[in-house]
Design a protein around this nucleic acid. Structure first.
Lengths: 325, 325
DNA sequence: TTGAAAGCGGTACCAA
DNA sequence: TTGGTACCGCTTTCAA
């Protein structure tokens, strides 16, 4: 592999001159031509390690997330990447599969890969662990979608409680008194917030909470499918069900139809996240739509601000969802 | 940020000794204690750039893929990461969103991030472009799921043609003569292979191909949903439909049910990829199940072989799918 | 504008 | 075992 020294020798100039040319400073035109020729001939590329060693930055952003295959995260990540690319950064995604050990390790590894900043969708790390791992590296971090208690950095969240409140309330207003919720595990803060929204809607409408109508498990098709079957086994069946994420929604309406029931005549359903799916169905399923794009763009902008030296107080932004009927 | 020099000074030993201790060589025990104390006190961490500059490796593997949110890729990536981690490597995922410009850029960026090897799920890059970008870096690469024509490196694929052949044939054997296919775009090689399997099954069973029953579009719910509606508008309707990926399958059976039709009585359906979904339905949908785990493990192993110096001929492996009835 | 030289933070060789 | 030192490849300062 050719080095800057080889280029300098071949072009008959000094290393410094080559370096300047590479980095966009002006160089006398005959030398520029010679350097360009030498670079071409040797197929020279700057060594990224050497460059980063000197500058201590890499123009890389880490994205640390729990689950690579949720469509929600896919959309968010695409939005993030777009903004970063426009500003000359590239994104390195690291997925910890909702596993605590991997969450630690992958954070460590991203740091070793030389990231300049971090977009972090946390799950199980404590603020202490985070600090221990990042201490000394001064890596600006923006938490996204979820937050770690006590971690004092920028965060961009979605208003999950309000969204599910509104979905539940809309079913109640249609006359339903037995409204169920099928949601993700309590350990994930977004799931918990959605549960809170559900409970508040019931209580605001003077409906007693029945825990047989309150199912929480993981964020999968199976949860939605089996959750519905479980609801059908309850003596006083629900007449409407709110789903709390993409896969649960699909599992739910599939189970409804497997039983030969019609939506909304036999059972009313409110979907979550899978807007394209729900709006295409006949009749369309009402659905909570999260602002994935805006979430990504906002978080990216917060991080870019920090990378450019902004040092104000940590910002916390909560974006509203929209309900699509 | 403390450097190795600071540690050496505080521990009253030389830099070399500290370096040796860090890298696992034996050091006299009193010095070891002093070094450990100094590291703790200064909260010292080796600078990844400096280390990589010397060794020219990073213990990082790049995974370059087109679509982060397909469940298929999610499972594959998880399997890859597991193997790499067991061997001391970590994975950096880069998603190019099926965009040619980004495919180039992200490959370049992964190289700049200092990857030692690459798992590559290609889409639109030519062998020339690949060589141009990687020339000089000697980054061992394993192509996965798809291949670039003329790119001579290890590859691990899935036998898509056989899988769809078998799915189509099974429907024909049940008596169907009008069997449709809804698949992804022709530009993606896996989609094309699936189309080939379909066409061959028809011809082997003396069924004339009817291009009204042959729909290809992108790999989305909408393709499955609208594709089915389009099929229902054909004068001589199909009696069975094969789907060619996850989202298409879900779109397809949702559309079937939106029309009030029953599976399999009114229309027969063969799913693809969404094994959990299909097997849970009542009655279960037959489905093509890809060997995601094995695909990931095999590709990872091929890459590790190369990183450990194996230099045999490029290997091409094609893994079979299984049909689940 | 140009070039010499001093680092950036480690690693590894070699002599002690 | 230990420590001095050259070196990895590039950037940047400073003097010419």
């Amino acid at each position: 592999m050719a080095t800057i020294k080889d280029v300098a020798r071949l072009a008959n100039v000094s290393m410094s001159t080559v370096s300047k040319y590479i980095n966009g400073q002006t160089v006398r035109s005959d030398k520029e031509i010679a350097i360009r020729a030498a670079i071409r001939e040797l197929n020279y590329r700057a060594n990224p390690f050497a460059r980063s060693l000197k500058s201590q930055r890499n123009r890389a952003i880490g994205i640390l997330l729990p689950d690579i295959s949720a469509p929600f995260f896919g959309t968010v990540v695409t939005a993030l990447e777009k903004v970063f690319r426009e500003h000359g950064y590239h994104a390195l995604i690291s997925c910890y599969s909702s596993n605590h050990g991997m969450e630690r390790d992958n954070l460590r590894h991203l740091i070793c890969a030389g990231i300049d900043g971090l977009i972090y969708i946390p799950e199980n790390l404590s603020a202490e662990e985070y600090h221990e791992l990042t201490a000394g590296y001064s890596i600006p971090t923006v938490q996204m979608d979820r937050i770690i208690q006590g971690l004092d950095c920028d965060a961009v969240l979605v208003d999950n409680a309000d969204a599910v409140y509104a979905a539940t309330a809309s079913l109640i207003k249609k006359g339903h008194r037995r409204v169920a919720l099928i949601s993700g595990a309590k350990s994930v803060s977004t799931a918990k917030e959605r549960q809170v929204g559900y409970l508040r809607a019931l209580s605001d409408h003077d409906i007693l909470f029945d825990d047989a109508l309150f199912i929480c498990n993981d964020h999968t098709f199976a949860t939605g499918y089996q959750g519905f079957e479980q609801l059908m086994a309850v003596p006083d069946r629900p007449t409407a069900v709110v789903a709390a994420n993409y896969d649960i929604t699909i599992g739910l309406f599939t189970a409804v139809r497997d039983r030969g029931l019609r939506i909304p005549e036999d059972i009313d359903v409110f979907g979550f996240d899978c807007t394209q799916v729900c709006t295409m169905m006949k009749p369309p399923l009402p659905v909570v739509s999260q602002p994935e794009e805006l979430l990504g763009r906002t978080a990216a902008q917060y991080l870019l601000d920090r990378l450019q030296g902004y040092s104000g107080e940590p910002r916390l932004t909560r974006l509203p969802c929209s309900l699509i009927y």
